[in-house]
Computed example of a mutant assay.
Amino acid sequence: MSPGTYLRLRREATGLSLRELAYQFFTPPLDLAEVEQLLVNAEADDAPLDAGSLHRVNLFVPLDIEIYASLLAELPTRSVCRRCACSWFDPCQDSFGPCAWADAAATLCTRCARIEATAEKQKRPVA
């Protein structure tokens, strides 16, 4: 997983669009379009977020800063969900509480496993 993919998955897991996050992140004298472009560039892996910007994003999007830093440095990371990018230190929350790992390899959280199972059921023809 790339650092930009990690940021995008975490943002999407919160339900925020890029524009909505940019608006939350926006502080004059920066222009809203500049902030949105900064986020677009970060998610496209064109320009990583600096520490200040990363911590500001983390006010609105739950992130594991150590995972982001490891991904930037291309170092091994702790387990990260392949669907929402949650981790042990940054679990998803749903009506069942915080998620856990759904597979032995720790690549899919229980919340995302339930979402995938529901989607798979909806694909099956009704008998």
Rank of each mutant, 00 (worst) to 15 (best):
W88I: 01
F26P: 00
D45K: 04
R19C: 00
E34S: 13
R19P: 00
D45P: 12
E74W: 07
L71H: 10
N41L: 10
A69T: 00
P76G: 05
V80N: 04
A33L: 02
A51T: 13
L32E: 13
D94L: 07
C99Y: 00
Y23Q: 14
A51N: 09
V61F: 05
V61Y: 06
R19Y: 14
A44L: 15
A100C: 08
E36I: 02
F25L: 15
H55T: 07
F60I: 07
F89Y: 06
I67E: 00
V80E: 02
D46N: 08
S87V: 04
Q37R: 14
L63G: 10
F96G: 08
L72K: 12
A69S: 06
V80T: 06
P48R: 01
F25M: 15
S95W: 11
C86G: 01
Y68W: 12
S95D: 14
A42C: 02
E43R: 03
I67W: 04
I65Q: 07
F96S: 13
L63M: 08
L18V: 10
E74T: 12
A51P: 07
F89T: 13
P29Q: 07
L21W: 03
Q37T: 15
D50N: 15
P28Y: 08
F25G: 05
S87P: 03
D94C: 11
P62H: 07
P91A: 01
V35M: 06
L59T: 08
P62R: 10
A44I: 03
A85P: 01
L63N: 09
S95Q: 13
R19F: 12
A100V: 08
C84L: 03
G52H: 10
F60Q: 04
Q93I: 14
L63A: 12
C99V: 06
